[in-house]
């Protein structure tokens, strides 16, 4: 049987009306969004920022616990409650490695011998590394701006090496060790050239 267009439209409309009368349309319930990102407090209590971009546009998250759905169109941030966070991330939390810690050791002018105060920090450094899984350590030597760039590159390296020796001799079991020098290129306190500055004569040791 072939129906012309008008008849088709009539049949379709009749079916729609019949369907509408028989059962009221179910309320529209959007599926619970499952993919999302949520911004958390930093360890020091500050809160950073996330920009989340998708075809729906770009939005900025800058409040603690504020989140947005990652469904490709999410543009409305909302507060994610603690119970949802714990439900979705308890296992990820349980796997978190210890956060890295850094120490700064200081030197007298031009030499590679730690100041008395810095010498006294060594036990705390060893203690920080003790219970970490596969501790990897970086040691970076720095100098002030006294002398040439080249000489300071070498002095920074000597300082870093001496600290690495101290912690190794103290029995620290290091999984991986990286030693480097920033010479006078990464000053803690910005100074003119050829300026003695105790705060710049340092070794930074980070234990991960």
């Amino acid at each position: 049987m072939i129906l012309d267009l008008k008849t088709w439209i009539f049949v379709c409309a009749a079916l729609l009306v019949a369907a509408g009368c028989a059962t009221p349309p179910p309320p529209v319930v959007p599926p619970a969004p499952k993919s999302y990102v949520v911004l958390m407090d930093n360890q020091d209590g500050t809160v950073g920022q996330l920009s989340v971009s998708s075809t729906g546009g770009e939005i900025l998250l800058n409040k603690s616990h504020s989140g947005v759905d990652l469904d490709g169109t999410g543009t409305t941030p909302y507060t994610v409650d603690e119970s949802r966070i714990n439900r979705d991330f308890a296992e990820a939390f349980s796997a978190q490695p210890p956060l890295p810690v850094s120490f700064v050791l200081h030197y007298n002018i031009g030499d590679t011998v730690l100041t008395v105060e810095s010498q006294a920090m060594i036990p705390a450094i060893l203690e920080a590394a003790k219970n970490r899984p596969a501790p990897d350590v970086s040691v970076i030597g720095h100098t002030d701006t006294m002398g040439t760039v080249e000489a300071n590159e070498i002095l920074g390296l000597q300082r870093a090496k001496s600290v690495a020796e101290i912690i190794k001799n103290a029995g620290l079991n290091v999984h991986d060790l990286t030693i480097s020098s920033h010479g006078e290129k990464n000053l803690m306190v910005i100074t003119l050239d050829n300026t003695p500055e105790p705060k710049n004569r340092r070794v930074e040791i980070t234990i991960r």
């Binding site: 990102v37 911004l39 958390m40 950073g48 996330l50």
Partner: peptide, 8 residues
């Protein structure tokens, strides 16, 4: 931008 966050 320098932060702590969770993704699901």
């Amino acid at each position: 931008r320098g932060t702590h966050y969770l993704v699901k």
